[in-house]
Nucleic acid binder design. Structure first.
Lengths: 204, 204, 204, 204
DNA sequence: CATGAATGAGTTTTCATTCAT
DNA sequence: AATGAATGAAAACTCATTCAT
């Protein structure tokens, strides 16, 4: 079936082009922000014509939303639960590994940080909803983990919802502060710091 | 001195008008964001003509910056240190009172939250600098308090800088989550939650 | 009649104020041009309120027109004819004196030059008409003098109208070139140059 | 090379469009002046959208400056020197031909006159500089010619600089007076008049 | 009569989007 | 499918003029 083969190749080319524009847009948006970045900036950087852009994306909003979806999905993928089954590694060690892993993933793609923590904040309702959903899921996941921990007697009595907000807030703040710029960081140290803080608090 | 009296009244009227426009702009910006709010929106809501706006403010940026300055100053004013001198109230109680007070202040003016935590984020370099400075001061204050606590043996061994980032992040997240909408909240409960979390952590 | 005396004083005060604003406007317009000079510039320089300005002049155009009228009248006054009656000074000497006198008058008030030769040019139809009339009168005066000179056998055969245009053009160009800036000039030398040129031409 | 051919056609179309807008702007500016002509006037007359204008020109100022550059270049091109080599036509005849030619060129494009002699006068510093340079070059050219004439014994003793100012002034005045409106003129007669005046003066 | 705050029509300019080639 | 010239709605901002005090 030579025709379907050709069609296939065309589809792949289209997909590649599409992703290329998305990649470029990530750079442009993360550097200039949403409003200060123009479609002109994107198409120039991508080396395509204005019209071409609109063959792949419906609007400036649309590409940003898609971008955000990709970012969120990537972030989600780098987050995995803790195995509490017998024979698994000690919980604390698992936590350190997990949190370090997330920080490493974020560290790899700092544009993510800028987009999710700066550019996308307060943009429009749809974006807000997406971020809310993402954070909500994370919070729910954390809260659930805490509840399970409470049942296992590992976590003290507390409002898991509120506690989850605090944990996530601390984490986000560390990311924003230490991974918002271009400085190198010791992700292991940060992960330890966040976990010690969240688990043991600051009292002597 | 009737002349100076009249001049005084005029000056006051001007100041009142100015503040009125600022107040209206606070509403408009907090509801629509910076880019989606036009000067037309502001002047319509204020019931003045376009030109009037420009008699009081140089530009759209200018009024937003001024607004932000006011908000930050207000926030700063609601934050006070903890008295560790002898005869002072127990530190823990003071902390609860302080944090509850801050939450109450923010609760009173929820537009503040939307502006500072959403609208102003990632707007432009000057705004970024202002927020950075504000958060930096807060962090420095917290870090210093932690260091003092360490010397008094109250706070455990840790990187005060990193810990301050976590504390502030947890606090910010709580504000954003619980005071970002229009729901009523129990600020005392939130303050307790944040403090317990920050001081004792979550382990059983 | 104390009342009329008071009224008189008031009238004089009004007149003085009016002239003061005109004087200031002359400075402002000659420096900034018509469009780039704002009413704000004028009232600030005059030390009066905006409303006051409009009590004395109907509009920005109006004050400029009035200004131009004054300037033109002043220029006209510094121009006098040549006495060809018996016993009068030699015509050539009279001409030198007259032209030098005009140049001196203009030299005294260089703002005149800027207003009449730059600012007022191409402003609007009414201004154009005024300048046209002024130049037309001058040309007519010169043409008439030339015709009289022809009858006396002093001036050669030529189209007096066209010749008047040339004479006036040469004069204007000299004023513009040598009195347009702030450099000191030798008006006598300029007058001689213009006259030699106009009377004898440039051929050896 | 079909591609370069298409690109070539596109480039030409762009250039044509650009020139069309310039032509229209020449009309609009020469009729209304710079300040009274709005971009709206230009684009309406050109039959294009607002945005199209800004694809070709950076600003209202920019198109005017470009327009002025074209006009000045055109004027310059219509001016040629006088050939004093042996075997050349008599100088006087050459001068008549040259001056008549310039007047004819100007006659052809009366908008030039209005723009250069009215609209552009006193507009802004850059425009002033351009006109100054143009007139300066002309003056310098005339002054140099006069100096050469003096060396050949054709031109009498005089300040060539001042004489050049007079010659140019006379010429300009004739252009302004006779070619400023829409009346037909006999350029040959005007050229003769200017030359007779400049060379022989008005004395009998 | 003086004041100066208020007005709002009018201007230039931007930029996401469309569409003929 | 790619191009990029054309579009025009919408925005910020100015400033001559008015009018209540």
């Amino acid at each position: 079936m030579p025709e379907s083969a050709r069609a296939e190749r065309a589809r792949e080319a289209r997909e590649a082009r599409r992703q290329q524009i998305l990649d470029v847009a990530l750079d442009v948006f993360s550097e200039k922000g949403f409003h200060d970045a123009s479609i002109t900036d994107v198409v120039k950087a991508a080396g395509v014509a204005r019209g071409t852009f609109y063959q792949y994306f419906d609007s400036k909003q649309a590409i940003f939303h898609e971008l955000l979806d990709q970012l969120i999905e990537n972030l989600r993928d780098s987050i995995v639960g803790v195995d509490v089954s017998e024979g698994a590694a000690p919980v604390r060690q698992q936590l350190v590994t997990t949190v370090t892993g997330i920080l490493d993933a974020v560290d790899q793609q700092r544009q993510f940080v800028r987009i999710v923590l700066r550019v996308a904040v307060g943009l429009d309702e749809e974006v807000d909803a997406k971020l809310s959903e993402f954070y909500g899921n994370l919070r729910a996941f954390i809260a659930m983990s805490l509840r399970r921990g409470q049942m296992l007697g590992l976590i003290r009595e507390c409002d898991p919802q509120l506690a989850a907000v605090c944990v996530l807030g601390a984490f986000r703040a560390v990311v924003e502060e230490y991974l918002g710029g271009d400085d190198k960081v010791d992700t292991h140290r940060l992960a330890l710091g966040i976990l010690e803080f969240s688990l043991k608090g600051l009292l002597a």
